[in-house]
Design a protein around this nucleic acid. Structure first.
Length: 542
RNA sequence: GCGCUUGUAGCUCAGCUGGACAGAGCAUCUCCCUCCUAAGGAGAGGGUCGGACGUUCGAAUCGUCUCAAGCGCGCCA
């Protein structure tokens, strides 16, 4: 157990001696920001003094006397009643050996036996993924990785809206492009897809059909074929782009399949007591739960609104046994949250069975101005181009670097810079430096007890490493990958400070060398673990 | 009009289940490589935490009001 947690238990026991029973979770112990305030600080006396009928200072003094001092060097009571703890060195350095022993598993949360489904990207297979998808993709995948590491059983799912009329437009566009290629008269639909990628796909399908053309165009099944084949090819491209981006999905769900077998009708039946008719349309009484307005589910012309099959889809996901659904959506969907939650509540689920993570817009910035367009196609800047331009590491790191709820300016110039200005390089460089030291001293056995730590920069780094498990818990709970990038920065900063202050390899002083090598190894492990949660590589050389 | 999100240093953002002088990066200025990667480090300047009032021993953090920006409020998806 980490020294901070031990300290909490220590305080808990001391409080008991004073006749106060408190859960450990109610005892706050913080890492001191200022070294003068010791290693850890607690405001517990300020919180409890009033109820105990004492002044915070007196309360702190009494508490201090009840503490077990075996791990504590000394205690200072400061300010209005803060208790500052100066820990014994061994108590702080023990985490180094722990990290080295646990390696890739350092920071991993306990197995929770909870199944979580994270749905993200879910772009219609009608064209290339563009940068608008890229942030949601990076955040969705990082949330998945973080929660997996925290001990959840995570499924990554992609929902294909293949039943709507966008797919019809795709089919039409392909058919007309094939006609064009065959020299026949053609007419692109106004709401069709006009990009070069559709032309490429049309050409590919044309080649596949070969001699069957142009006769096949008159076949009544041809349109259905263009639709499904076009979609398959689009999806193939998307999968490939995502794989390059280090994202793979466990499940691709098709709207058509979800809808099959009267699933929608059955759902309407199930919800019947919350449904009423209004001017020929069926309306769901979502206001009975969280919504501020009832929602149409079947239009007066008999068609479903988008919402209806989506309810079926979410119910379907839950029927597969997930304890929690997470949807990663664009921020413009915020009106959708309470409506979907309400529908699920009609099924008896709690409102928090579904979490919707809203992702704010990204502005790509280049030379101080917004950069929107692909240089190749004249359409939107694609994910593939972005990866080619700045690399997957920088792309993924930048996209998760800020809280999802806030707008993000993606500085393309900074992302390609090979210098410390670039936060990705700053972190990766720290890792590479550590590897370089470890390689140069591979013949020296590391001292896992880290028994010769003495410099301030060594302790600053060790304390930072000890925070990792807590950072994971918070990032997982808040679904906040940016907490990991912040942490990575802090670790990298301390690594660089340590590197500068402490010469590691000293052939004349094997003890100190072995102790410092342990710090290097532990730091390397933590950096690598943290980077991997974001899908960012930890290079050995740069 | 209603709802959601945002407003913190010149710029981009942390900090927000209330706590000790408000932090980081970039940009600006000073220093530091005979030595494991200077893709680094040390230091300086720079802030009425949008505004007002309230709760509290204590508010960037909580509450109310207000100003500003973005986005939603379809029988669109």
């Amino acid at each position: 157990m980490e020294s901070k947690d031990l300290l909490k238990l220590n305080i808990q026991t001391a409080l008991k001696k004073l006749g106060i029973d408190l859960d450990v979770s109610a005892i706050s112990v913080d890492d001191s920001k200022n070294p003068e305030h010791g290693d850890f600080a607690s405001n517990i006396a300020l919180k409890l003094a009033r109820n105990a009928g004492k002044t915070p200072l007196d309360f702190a003094k009494e508490l201090n006397e009840a503490l077990d001092k075996s791990e504590i060097e000394r205690v200072e009571i400061a300010g209005p009643g803060f208790i500052n703890f100066f820990m014994k060195k061994d108590s702080l350095t023990s985490v180094v050996g722990k990290i080295i022993d646990e390696k890739d598993n350092y920071g991993r949360g306990e197995k929770k036996n909870l199944k979580v489904n994270v749905e993200f990207v879910s772009a219609n297979p009608t064209g290339d993924l563009h940068v608008g998808h890229a942030r949601g993709a990076a955040i969705g995948d990082s949330i998945s990785r973080i929660m997996e590491f925290d001990g959840y059983d995570v499924t990554r799912e992609y929902y294909i809206n293949d039943a709507g009329n966008q797919i019809d437009h795709l089919g039409e566009s392909i058919r007309e492009r094939i006609k064009e290629a065959l020299g026949l008269p053609f007419a692109l639909p106004d709401d069709g897809y006009h990009g070069v990628d559709v032309i490429n796909i049309a050409n590919q399908i044309k080649d596949e059909l070969g001699d069957k053309l142009p006769a096949f165009l008159d076949d009544p099944d041809s349109f259905e074929f263009f639709k499904t084949r076009g979609m398959e090819l689009e999806l193939e491209k998307i999968r490939k782009d995502l794989k390059e981006y280090r994202i793979t999905f466990d499940i691709y769900s098709s709207e058509r399949k979800i809808r099959s077998g009267n699933a929608v009708e059955k759902e309407i039946d199930y919800l019947s007591k919350y449904i009423y008719k209004d001017e020929g349309a069926l309306v769901l009484k979502t206001t009975e739960f969280l919504d501020d307005k009832d929602r149409v589910i079947v239009k007066s012309n008999g068609e479903y609104t988008y919402f209806m099959p989506d309810i079926v889809y979410h119910v379907n996901k839950l029927s597969r046994g997930y304890d929690k659904l997470i949807d990663v959506l664009g921020a413009d969907h915020h009106g959708y949250i309470n409506r979907m939650k309400s529908a699920l509540m009609m099924h008896g689920y709690s409102s928090d069975v579904l979490d919707i993570e809203l992702i704010q817009m990204v502005r790509m910035m280049k030379d101080g101005a917004e950069f929107k367009l692909s240089k190749r196609t004249g359409n939107g800047y694609t994910l593939r181009e972005l990866c080619e331009d700045v690399g997957v590491d920088a792309a993924r790191y930048f996209f998760v670097m800020r809280a999802a709820t806030g707008h993000l300016d993606f500085d393309l110039d900074l992302a390609v810079k090979q210098s410390s200005d670039n936060p990705v390089y700053y972190a990766q460089y720290a890792h590479a430096r550590l590897c370089s030291i470890l390689n140069s001293a591979s013949d020296i056995k590391v001292d896992k007890a880290c028994s010769h730590a003495g410099e301030a920069s060594e302790f600053a780094l060790i304390k930072e490493l000890a925070k990792f498990p807590d950072v994971i818990k918070v990032a997982s709970k808040e679904r906040a990958p940016y907490k990991i990038t912040n942490y990575i920065h802090d670790v990298a900063e301390k690594v660089h400070g340590f590197y500068t202050e402490c010469r590691v390899i000293d052939r004349d002083n094997k003890e100190v060398t072995a102790s410092r090598l342990a710090i290097c190894l532990a730091s390397k492990i933590v950096l690598k673990n943290a980077l991997s949660l974001l899908g960012v590589s930890a290079p050995e050389h740069m």
